[in-house]
Design a protein around this nucleic acid. Structure first.
Lengths: 342, 342
DNA sequence: GAGATTGTTGCAATCGATTGCATGATTTCA
DNA sequence: TGAAATCATGCAATCGATTGCAACAATCTC
């Protein structure tokens, strides 16, 4: 059996004894402290490898009074108290997890269970981690601000609203809305609707980009073309039908999300309208299904995995006492069939 | 200001000093140890509350030689090395997180980055947690078995394949496939296709349920009605078109997932076929979009949040040295429009 | 060759809790 | 009243690492 005395060396002391040095020397050697002679260092490192020993992080973190843990808090939708399970969150989580692993941090997952985030303040999430990443700020500006003022190291995925007191990483929502709309204008559309609730900062920004593009093309925004479909979308279909019933002209739609866009497309098709021939549709997020719908959905993609990495770099920067700026990640228009060829 | 001397009491010693007792007594009091008089206990607990003190879990876990951490490992698709970002995983994660929180455990998130899970063995995921939950066993039976044999406390979300040596929690895939198919048979369909790759145990089980239902209705399974669309589905559309081109008769389709079902529906509609009038379609998973497609998708729902809870109960049972059986969670057929009324 | 300098390693305190055992106080019982 | 039993609390070791300071050895300088 090639197993050479395993399971024996379980502490620094064991290793030190084995090497005939003190615990202190062993500790320094494994941490590559130059105060220890190169020979001793190599020797101990080799020994550690041979016996499959590695430093007990729990003990180390305890001694060093840190946790090596970053909490990730998923905010709940204020109204529905529901998880905002946009499909892309899992990707973002993946990005975060990878980045944290690279930096030797752990990821503690939680979600704000109550409307009042502050209730989380005294919880493990806050007390037992070196920093917190909030996903989705929604309308909870006040409470997030308060946490930030209490000295919590935190980064929020969302949109930099004016009075925020924390670091924000977010997509270029204005740019995304702008690109989507501009493309529709370029291919000749003029009666462009905007579907989706704009009651949170990110969506409002997308709408702002929409308006910006319209104004560049000297198209007056038509308020009747804006449909404020709520998050749940249960009534997306009705809202769309209502609008079409009211005889407005419409030749394109910018949607707040892919889910909304897919619901829109199927509603339109149901009503006998052709996408994109009669009406162009553009979504937002580039979820997996976007590529498999019929027609395939033109949409705005945010590099969500990369966003996860940036979020991590940001908290870690905070932990290191750096001055961390907000980050805005660019969005990219993915042109597929649902908008019609240029 | 109502803040009465905060930020002072940060260790048991502080609290003990404040109460005029020893550290030991304080510890026992907070842990409701009956050896301490009720009066002293109440007094210390009140004091702790008043000063916002709570036991430092890091120190406690260190002392007690445990981690209070459960790792959750998301398996990667073997071929594509891609995250299996089925939308419902986030829900499951939510369920797991909640259940762990209830039991005062933390959740460490990771994913098996390499084809070889064993490489994770020496990583923090394994060494720094009291147990592991694997999501999605795919074809990695061998390696999972080996981990289990090495004494790793682990529970796997998947399907109980014959030679497994670990605890499995999974949906009733046979039952799900059976219910979906049976319903189609009940409403008179007979040429029922099965769309989706069956190269992993869970999907194979769904197919098994499909066959079972057919046989109950004395319908001979037609192999040409089985389309083995790969996970990525890039070619789902082509595969479907190919099949229809070959002039087979088809009046219904059971799909391996909702994503597949949605792709199928749009392909069929594109070809001028009506769903459900010409062809019924049934999916699996009940993703959010299933309720918003047109027609709304009939699908098999697994209570995925509940599954998360069961997974947690199972690892915790393992940790407590209990004999934990496999669990199979029932599946429910959600009847919507895409299959046609009964 | 003596003193100063530099290089290497060890001693022991420390992080914040838990817990076996000892001790002192109180009650019980004959 | 005195011994035994019971109750309540404290002492001090312990978990596994890190690190300031001291100590000793080796090298250098004049």
């Amino acid at each position: 059996m090639p197993k050479s005395g395993r399971n024996k060396v379980s502490s620094l002391q064991d290793l030190a004894d084995l090497a005939g040095v003190s615990r202190a020397t062993a500790s320094r050697a494994l941490n590559d402290n130059p105060i220890i002679s190169a020979r001793t260092r190599k020797k101990l490192q080799a020994l550690a490898r041979k016996h499959g020993y590695s430093i007990n992080r729990q003990a180390r973190d305890f001694r060093l009074r840190r946790t090596s843990v970053i909490s990730v808090v998923f905010m709940l939708d204020v109204e529905s108290q529901q998880h905002m399970s946009d499909p892309f969150f899992l990707d973002m989580l993946g990005g975060i997890a990878d980045a944290l692993a690279d930096h030797d941090y752990d990821l503690l997952l939680a979600h704000a269970p109550i409307a009042n985030i502050l209730d989380v303040k005294e919880s493990r999430v806050m007390r037992q981690s070196d920093g917190v990443i909030f996903i989705g700020q929604e309308q909870q500006l006040e409470q997030l601000n308060q946490l930030a003022e209490d000295g919590q190291l935190m980064v929020v995925w969302g949109y930099p609203v004016p009075d925020k007191k924390y670091v924000v990483v977010g997509g270029d929502n204005v740019g995304g809305g702008y690109k989507a709309t501009k493309h529709l204008l370029e291919i000749g559309r003029r009666k462009i609707g905007f579907f989706g609730a704009t009651n949170n900062p990110e969506n409002a920004a997308r709408h702002e980009g929409y308006l910006k593009a319209l104004s560049e093309y000297n198209v007056d925004p038509d308020p009747t073309l804006k449909v404020d479909v709520p998050f749940e979308m249960l009534r997306a279909r009705e809202a769309i039908i209502d609008m079409l019933d009211s005889q407005v002209e419409l030749d394109a739609v910018v949607c707040i999300s892919d889910v909304m866009a897919l619901a829109t497309m199927s509603t339109l098709q149901e009503l006998g309208l052709r996408v994109p021939q009669d009406i162009s549709v553009v979504g937002y997020d580039d979820i997996t299904l976007a590529a498999y719908s019929s027609p395939q959905l033109t949409t705005v993609r945010q590099n969500i995995r990369h966003a996860g990495r940036i979020l991590v770099e940001s908290v870690l920067g905070l932990i290191n006492g750096e001055n961390v700026p907000d980050t805005m990640l660019s969005s990219e228009l993915i042109i597929r069939n649902s908008c019609g060829a240029k």
